[in-house]
Design a protein around this nucleic acid. Structure first.
Length: 156
DNA sequence: GCCAACGTTGGC
DNA sequence: GCCAACGTTGGC
């Protein structure tokens, strides 16, 4: 079991939006960063738990808990000329961009803000909090996940 | 392979 | 809107 933090701008796709999806499952499309892609392609397993993080909002922070819901497969938006994620360099025979489906797992009672995360001694080494790290998908340790789950009073 | 220019992310 | 950080692109 691996643990992850995945960022989303709530104006684009929020944790509430995920809950409202059919089957509460949604393809995590539009990732156009190789490191983030590699995490999905190589390291994610169905059932891995995800801290769903809201970025570019006030305040930013963890809004809920999701899980990996599919094996990796090619991101269809890369081949969709109408999509803003269309990538003419991605060959359908050798897809460049890979995603997984993500599904709702559990609510947290209170959001855990970035400010609060920075104040938590359990998270001093958390990768997502290191300066300059803009990756939208990052591995998280079990203890970091548990600390945030506890701070958010999740029922999980 | 180097690196300058440019684009994006994301907190503030 | 600003800007630091960092990824990508493309000329050479």
């Amino acid at each position: 079991m691996n643990y992850w933090l995945m960022k989303s701008e709530p104006d684009v796709f929020s944790f509430e939006d995920l809950k409202a999806c059919i089957k509460q499952t949604e393809p995590w499309d539009g990732i156009r960063n190789y490191q983030a892609r590699n995490f999905m392609r190589d390291d994610m397993r169905i059932g891995d738990l995800i801290l769903f993080y809201h970025s570019n909002t006030n305040p930013p922070g963890v809004a809920g808990i999701a899980q990996v819901a599919s094996k990796p497969y090619p991101d269809p938006t890369a081949f969709d000329k109408k999509s803003k994620y269309f990538d003419p360099k991605s060959d359908p025979k050798n897809p460049r961009w890979i995603l997984v489906d993500v599904s709702f797992k559990a609510d947290i009672v209170r959001q855990v803000s970035l400010e609060e995360m920075k104040s938590m001694p359990e998270l001093v080494n958390m990768r997502a909090l290191q300066r300059g790290n803009r990756l939208s998908i990052m591995p998280t340790t079990r203890s970091e996940f548990q600390a945030i789950k506890k701070a958010g009073q999740s029922s999980l």
